[in-house]
Design a protein around this nucleic acid. Structure first.
Length: 422
RNA sequence: GGUGAGGUGGAUGAGUGGCUGAAAUCAACGGUUUGCUAAACCGUCGUAGGGCCUUAAAGCUCUACCGAGGGUUCGAAUCCCUCCCUCACCGCCA
């Protein structure tokens, strides 16, 4: 969530930035500041009254030990009247604090200056395009046909055993998944990321920390008997490792990577967009997360974009990088770059990575801080990105590299896969 | 899942109703000493939210926090209740 100090000190700027994100309830900003004024007033009253009670209690103890019962009894009466005054203040204060928090979490992160204005995906800015557009041979088919032809993925079997959106990978298909995961993790750890293998379910506090709750509750699978959520991305458990932690400045940057399956309910999706591997309820992804000094986060964002770009290049895919416009970026992000690869047989761009700087929006919720040179605690900035999401990469690899002899794998993968061709 | 013992600051650990926001030790940080390192010595050393003061920083002061939430009491780390977690043993088990 945004910091109160930001709202108070830069009120007009905050409103302008929120408008870029097409946020409708700009008046919330003023409401929040008014509530905070109220909170301060009540806090002042509460603290003063409580101080009187504490002082009187101390005196009572002294009177008692000296055997001055009457004085003690008289001070007890005072305490009683202080308490009568305190109760309504306390109730008000609790109500105001709750309300303040409820409003505060409804404000999205502020988009950075670099975010293009706009409302829909058409308004996203294409930063650059790379790789070469593949030329397909005449008999080229989409990946779902290739999956069947080479017996790589069984969608129907997934329907039978679980439901749609939960495919079985099989034979060389399964092996290729394993090779991709292994390759991506190697690529990340060699760039200095520490590998984790996190739990696949998280508690409420963690889901709240990264912003999945309370807004996107419907997007996660909820195990109600134990009140746990299946993770929609490794970002959730991995970023929460540092929840409520105060780091040393020398510990920064913290660089983390993890492979996990990801679970998404994606209610409301339909049609050709969900065909084959394009959109699944369970898919595999390797994620990278960084916690960095606030002065460095945009530099780090560029570094992460370059990292993901290099990885995609080694796979020989035709790709483009988009800078998301205000209307298309996520609630919690300040600046997001999406990576799309070209899926030649579908003739479609598929999103395979999303790299974002959240600045202090997530870390304010999670209280991830560092101690600066003056010994003061400051929020770190958090960033994350996919490096990479597997299904759509797989789709593009299969489609773009097919010919009459089979599917030729990029050199970078051959060692991990143990062969050149499918 | 059952029984028992516990959860105190970065770590160990003292603290069973007021003098405890918390001893002591270790770690960490700053300094003195010193060819270097080590040792010794001195000092600092939780977080958050208010108020005063200040251009600001600093400083002063108040409030809250000893797993979480409630309760008893003039007063709770300390007593009571609920929940969570850890450890030990038993049961079950990849």
């Amino acid at each position: 969530m945004l910091q109160l100090a930001t709202l108070r000190n830069n009120t007009e700027l905050v409103k302008e930035r929120l408008a870029v994100k097409n946020f409708k309830e700009i008046n919330l900003v003023d409401d929040i500041i008014a509530l905070d004024d109220e909170r301060r007033k009540l806090t002042f009253g509460y603290d003063e009254t409580k101080a009187k009670i504490n002082a009187a209690s101390k005196e009572i103890g002294q009177f008692m030990s000296m055997g001055q019962k009457e004085e003690a009894a008289s001070r007890k009466k005072d305490v009683e009247s202080y308490k009568n005054a305190l109760n309504p203040i306390q109730e008000n204060l609790e109500a105001v604090e709750k309300q303040l928090n409820d409003l505060l979490i409804r404000l999205p992160n502020l988009p950075s200056d670099l975010v293009p204005k706009g409302k829909t995906p058409e308004d996203n800015e294409i930063v650059r395009t790379g790789g070469t557009k593949p030329e397909l041979y005449k008999g080229a088919v989409p990946h779902w046909d290739l999956a069947k032809k080479y017996d790589l993925i069984d969608f129907e079997l997934g329907n039978k055993v679980t439901g749609s959106g939960f495919p079985f990978y099989k034979g060389k298909g399964a092996k290729l998944q394993r090779a991709l995961i292994q390759y991506f993790l190697e690529f990340n750890t060699q760039a200095g990321y520490t590998e984790y293998m996190p739990p696949l379910m998280v508690n409420e506090a963690s889901a709240y920390g990264t912003g999945q709750l309370p807004d996107k509750e419907g997007q996660m699978y909820h195990v109600t008997v134990d009140n746990l959520y299946l993770i929609p991305t490794a970002e959730v458990p991995v970023t929460n490792i540092y929840r409520d932690v105060i780091l040393k400045e020398a510990d920064l940057p913290v660089k983390l990577t993890a492979y996990t399956p990801c679970f998404r309910r994606e209610a409301g999706s339909y049609g050709k967009d969900v065909r084959g591997l394009n959109r699944l309820h369970q898919f595999d992804k390797v994620e990278v997360v960084q916690l960095v000094h606030p002065d460095k986060s945009y530099e780090t964002l560029e570094e992460m974009v370059a990292h993901v770009e290099k990885l995609i290049q080694t796979l020989g895919l035709h790709y483009r990088i988009l800078r998301l416009c205000g209307g298309d970026m996520s609630f919690t992000s300040a600046l997001t770059y999406d990576f799309e690869v070209y899926s030649a047989a579908q003739e479609k761009w598929l999103e395979v990575s999303s790299v974002s700087n959240f600045e202090a929006y997530q870390t304010n919720r999670m209280k991830i801080r560092y101690k600066d040179a003056n010994g003061k605690s400051q929020l770190v900035h958090s960033l994350n990105g996919s490096s990479l999401a597997l299904p759509r990469i797989l789709a593009a690899l299969l489609e773009n590299n097919q010919d009459e002899n089979g599917i030729k794998l990029p050199v970078a993968l051959q060692g991990y896969f143990g062969g050149e061709m499918i």
